[in-house]
Amino acid sequence: METDQQILHRITEMADEERRLRDALTMGGADHAADRARLGALERELDQCWDLLRQRRARAEFGEDPDEARVRPQSQVENYRS
């Protein structure tokens, strides 16, 4: 199981890639179809990572084992309301 720090590191890497893709799409020097597909995948993966991190922190806060937190399906994470 990943630690909170490892999850945060993955989030940072994916956010950096997301930023680069958005910049490339804005500048017009990108393969739009492939970059848009990758951007969508990154957004879903980021949502899953943030959800996993929140689960781990909540478990730790309430005295439960954070390592019991699990990655939830994209379909579930994507339907959360803010």
Rank of each mutant, 00 (worst) to 15 (best):
E2W: 02
E2Y: 10
E2T: 04
T3E: 00
D4Q: 07
D4C: 08
Q5F: 01
Q6A: 01
Q6E: 04
Q6P: 01
Q6F: 00
Q6Y: 00
I7A: 05
L8W: 02
H9T: 03
H9K: 02
H9A: 03
R10L: 03
R10V: 02
T12Y: 08
M14Y: 15
A15C: 12
D16Q: 06
D16S: 08
E18F: 10
R19V: 00
R19L: 03
R20E: 15
R20L: 14
A24M: 03
M27L: 11
M27P: 00
G28S: 07
G28D: 09
G29Y: 07
H32Y: 06
H32A: 11
A33S: 11
A34D: 14
D35Y: 08
R36H: 12
L39W: 15
L42N: 05
L42W: 07
L42M: 09
L46Y: 08
L46E: 05
Q48V: 10
Q48Y: 11
W50Q: 06
W50E: 09
W50S: 03
D51Q: 09
D51G: 08
L52E: 11
L53C: 05
R54H: 07
R54K: 10
R54I: 07
R56L: 06
R56Q: 13
R59W: 09
F62K: 00
F62N: 00
G63H: 01
E64I: 02
D65L: 06
D65P: 07
P66W: 02
P66K: 02
D67M: 09
D67K: 09
E68N: 08
A69L: 04
A69M: 06
R70F: 03
V71R: 15
V71S: 14
V71A: 14
R72M: 15
P73I: 06
Q74M: 14
Q74N: 14
S75L: 03
Q76Y: 14
V77T: 14
V77D: 12
V77H: 10
E78C: 02
E78S: 13
E78P: 01
E78N: 11
S82Q: 07
S82V: 11
S82G: 04
